[in-house]
Amino acid sequence: MTESVFFYLLSGLVLSSAWSVVRNENLFHAGLSLILCFVGVAGIYMNLDAPFLGAMQVLIYAGAIAVLLLFGFMLTHDLMKARHERNQHLAGILIPVLMALLLVGTILNAQWHASSGQPVNFGVASLARRYMQQDLVAFEMVALLLLASLMGAVVIARKEEGSRE
C-alpha cells in the first residue's frame, strides 16, 4: 500500500515541478524546479525498486546536466532580466491537446499483459552483460556520438578563447 502512496506523492511532485518549469517567470527558479522534477522521477524509479536507475538519474540528470543548464542561465548575458513575450497562445493550446490525444490513444488500445508474477532479476550484472554482448554495436555508436559532441564543445570554447586574446 505504501508503494502506491509514495507513487502518487512523487508523481504529484513531478507534475507540479514540470508545470512550474513552464510557467515560472524567473528562469533560475525554472531551472531549480526542473531539477526537482528529475529527482521526483528518480524517486519513482526507486519506488519501482530499480535503485541503480534512480541513482543514475540523480547522478547524471540532477547532478550534471541540470547544473550545467543553470550555468548556462547564469553566464549568458541579461537572460534573467529580459521579459519574454508570450504571444504564441494558439500554438500553446493546440500542441498540448494533440499530445494528450496521442498519449491517451496509445494507452487505451495497448494490450497490457499482466506481469508473470515472479520478480524479474534485473540487476547491474545483467545490464552490463547485455551491453557487452547483445547490443555492443549500439553501445559503441553512442560512445562515438559522445566523442563527437565533446570535440564540438572544445572547438566552440577554443574559438571563443581565440577571439578574445
Binding site: 553566464l75 549568458t76 548575458h77 541579461d78 574559438k159 571563443e160 577571439s163 578574445r164
Partner: peptide, 9 residues
C-alpha cells in the same frame, strides 16, 4: 553581433 563568440559582459 561579434561573430558568434560568447559575448561576456
Amino acid at each position: 553581433d561579434d561573430g558568434g563568440a560568447l559575448r561576456t559582459e
